[in-house]
Design a protein around this nucleic acid. Structure first.
Length: 577
RNA sequence: GCGCUUGUAGCUCAAUUGGAUAGAGCGCCUGACUUCGGAUCAGGAGGCUGAGGGUUCAAGUCCUUCCGGGCGCACCA
């Protein structure tokens, strides 16, 4: 139950009715009219801007219009305690405590579905995220995008949409050849005692390659390692499989499981790239031409050459984009276009891509290709996760692949744990760079907002332990005539904002709103808890270890939201810490 | 040079898809545990939301021009 939607509907009905009676002129649509959470200082529960929005068209001051609206809104509403008009023209409603009794009843009876946007049309989403090259373990940089994608999926799933989480495996191209060669040299190092050519900058120096080499040797799939050419194809498959196995293990440790993995190589082998290029050619989106060197860049080494180009400038890109390399093989972009055709063919309602900041420049061309392929019928949403700045010893920590001094996702989780990693990565809007201070998260874990929220749940759980009830089991309520305290109603108000939080997070694909909300809710709860120190009446259980039904229900409802929220974020809700 | 993105308290960040007197944490100062878990709480100091212009009843939020940061700008992926 979303009380803001509920009252918005009601207010709109009132406005329509007044306009029918000729008391009010209304604009073409009422979209500008909203219900909001009033600032705390007003001691109100819901506010609306209706009078201000209607003011201009009616040529009347908001105050006068508000007066008319207030009378009509008040009519036949047994739940409104007071309603008043505030300075620029806001109408603020305060609800009676019976309203909150009903509100709580609703939640108790539908604890699993509280917060879900039931009105929303259910869609079928495809969300592609992580898609790191299968050449080694995931590192910290991948972590943020991974969590972002996973939690966006969780929010959509919570709202009862259908979601497919997909990983695009870039197992084709130069990087893969270099990677396979690296494995090959490590194998020779083991078999023939040849030193690994560490000076060759095309190769991957990381130690993990040694493990891949050992695993492949142990599998005994290949007998003769003397000639690279003879075994390169087989070795590529074995090597990328090793890398993928490791990546999946890393993801699992973060609590992420993709529904499907799509191989770039397969798209190429099945000639899906040719097919899509032919199609685009038939639609006149492709031509043979040259790309100009970018202005301001060092153009000494620039070689202009004829290439197969996609006309992304048709859609507003700065330049057209190459599809084919000079050796005739496809560019990354070409097979990605084929991949997106493949996505479109699977008939999703909405495609979502999660990209790292370093790939943001890629968004235009890929979205334009989706436009071209779908005849502008489909648009893809691309979310960018900004960089994570690692701080160690109060200094920025720069990672270098070459030196091998980069922090893997595995290291990160081993140090701070899955839950903290997820919560911190999500705690900020994905649009801003995030500072990840290793030391403060490891050393003083109390500074970690995750614990603050979890502690709230643990405190409630401890009350349940004292009264020998299970926090997880359903509560049977005899009658719903509660008498909530001022503080409890204040927290219930916050709980009433939960569906709104979910709604916005879902529509804007902004999961960071959930940890923020949970933190705020936990904060109110901790403050209330501490009142019990000075005033025993504010405690939840009395000397005889009894609890009133009101308080029991209140705790149940609060813990329910915290738990649901933590679950969406993908972290645990421990009963003891 | 171009594109994307960002600029809010000393630091790290929120801010209800345009709403009211811009809020938290850290740090700094003062206080609260014989009793439901102190991983907590109460109070104080700290702001011309980078600068100018515009749209609007209303702008941190939208448009525009500057200034500063980040990322990207070939056949890499």
């Amino acid at each position: 139950m979303n009380i803001f939607e509920q009252y918005l509907d009601k207010i709109k009905k009132v406005i329509l009715k007044l306009s029918k009676n000729g008391e009010l002129i209304i604009p073409k649509n009422l979209d500008g009219i909203t219900t909001e959470i009033p600032p705390i200082k007003f001691d109100a529960d819901i506010s609306t801007n209706a009078a201000m929005v209607l003011s201009k068209i009616n040529k009347k001051p908001p105050k006068d219009l508000a007066a008319i609206l207030v009378d009509e809104i008040k009519k036949d509403d047994e739940f409104i305690e007071s309603i008043n008009v505030v300075k620029p023209g806001f109408i603020n409603l305060k609800l009676k405590s019976i309203f909150w009794n009903n509100f709580v009843k609703e939640i108790i009876q539908n604890s699993e579905t509280f917060g879900i946007n039931k009105k929303e049309k259910k869609k079928n989403y495809l969300i592609e995220f992580v898609s790191a090259n299968p050449t080694g373990p995931l590192h910290v940089g991948h972590c943020r995008g991974a969590v972002l994608g996973d939690v966006i999926a969780n929010i959509l799933l919570f709202n009862k949409h259908k979601v497919t989480k997909e990983y695009y495996v870039n197992d084709y191209g130069n990087q893969i050849i270099n990677f396979t060669k690296s494995v090959y040299y490590r194998i020779r190092e083991i078999l023939f005692n040849e030193p690994f050519p560490i000076d060759n900058y095309e190769l991957y120096p990381g130690d993990y390659i040694i493990n891949f080499a050992k695993n492949i040797l142990n599998s005994k799939s290949i007998n003769d390692y003397k000639n690279f050419k003879n075994i390169s194809e087989q070795l590529t498959v074995l090597s990328t499989n090793e890398a993928l196995k490791l990546i999946k293990k890393n993801l699992n440790k973060l609590g992420i499981v993709h529904d499907s993995f799509i191989s770039e190589k397969k798209l190429v082998i099945n000639q899906e790239v040719e097919k899509v290029i032919n199609y685009l050619q038939s639609q006149n989106f492709i031509y043979q031409g040259k790309i100009k060197a970018p202005a301001g860049e060092n153009t000494k080494n620039w070689i202009e050459r004829d290439q197969l180009l996609f006309k992304s400038t048709n859609f507003g890109d700065d330049k057209d984009r190459a599809l084919q390399k000079s050796d005739g093989s496809w560019t990354y972009f070409a097979s990605d276009v084929a991949y997106h055709k493949n996505k479109l063919d699977r008939k999703f309602d909405q495609l979502i891509n999660i990209l790292g900041a370093d790939h943001a420049g890629y968004i235009k061309r890929i979205s334009f290709s989706v436009e071209a392929l779908s005849g502008s019928k489909q648009k893809i949403i691309c979310k960018v996760s900004q960089l994570v700045k690692l701080i160690k010893d109060k200094k920025p920590f720069k990672m270098s692949k070459r030196k091998g001094d980069y922090i893997t996702l595995d290291d990160l989780i081993n140090e701070v744990g899955k839950d903290a990693a997820r919560f911190i990565m999500l705690n900020r809007s994905s649009d801003v760079e995030l500072e990840f201070d290793f030391d403060s998260i490891i050393e003083k874990s109390k500074d970690n907002p995750l614990y603050y929220v979890q502690y709230c749940y643990a405190r409630i759980a401890s009350v349940f332990r004292h009264i020998e009830k299970d926090i997880k089991s359903k509560i049977i309520v005899k009658n719903y005539n509660f008498k909530f305290s001022k503080e409890e109603i204040n927290i219930l108000k916050k709980i009433s904002e939960w569906p709104k939080c979910i709604d916005i997070s879902s529509r804007k694909l902004e999961p960071h709103r959930i940890p923020t909300y949970l933190y705020e809710l936990a904060s109110l709860f901790h403050a209330y808890w501490n009142l019990g120190k000075e005033n025993p009446e504010k405690r939840f259980i009395n000397d005889k270890r009894n609890i009133s039904e009101d308080k029991l229900v209140f705790l149940k409802v609060t813990s329910n939201v915290i738990k649901t929220g933590l679950k969406i974020v993908g972290v645990s809700a421990p009963e003891k810490m």
